[in-house]
Design a protein around this nucleic acid. Structure first.
Lengths: 91, 91
DNA sequence: TAGAAATATTCAAATATTTAAATACTAAAA
DNA sequence: TTTTAGTATTTAAATATTTGAATATTTCTA
């Protein structure tokens, strides 16, 4: 993973609201709906949309349209790659 | 690791200059001198000092004074804890 | 002790991020 | 087809970050 990608993902993770979104996947298991994220955070809908966009732009979340709803899936592969890059710092 | 700590470390990692500093540890092995970081980055000394401070404040680097020089050690424990927190997102 | 070397701090300017209000878009439902 | 629900975009304000110039601090050395 190149340094720009590491930067992008790190920045996506550098906000408690976005970390809370990711942590919610542990509870909701496989997927999370946009509306659920709006309920989860104490922010207006546009702000939540902005945070979700950051996570999607970093490829941490994969969006999937379902009619007028939007479902997100955690991109475990990118998370694994990011973790692998961090592990490489340690040798 | 609490959410605020994850945020802090992620933010410290969200800059290519700071990532480059951490990557330099792989080449210099155990420790890195402040002056070496100044040489590494194409920034003025105060800017480098600022970046190093971010890494120290996130506990990713442990500073050690050696006379008027300053030596940094990579805090592998914090890095491990951070990685563990990221791994927890995946279950 | 005076001067030099290494690092930190202060300050200001430029840029980026976060947030919400207003509005637009898209797709389902009435 | 009009309305409604869900999500995105635009805009602007507040705040935070990044950077370098100037300066301060600390510690070594002559």
């Amino acid at each position: 993973m190149d340094i720009k990608k590491i930067e992008r993902i790190s920045r996506a993770l550098s906000d408690t609201n976005r970390i809370a979104i990711l942590q919610q996947f542990k509870k909701k298991k496989d997927c999370l709906y946009c509306a659920e994220v709006n309920d989860l955070l104490d922010l207006t809908q546009p702000s939540v949309s902005h945070h979700l966009k950051q996570l999607v732009d970093a490829d941490l979340l994969l969006p999937q349209k379902e009619g007028r709803n939007l479902k997100y899936i955690l991109n475990q592969q990118v998370l694994d790659d990011y973790i692998a890059s961090l592990n490489e710092l340690k040798d």
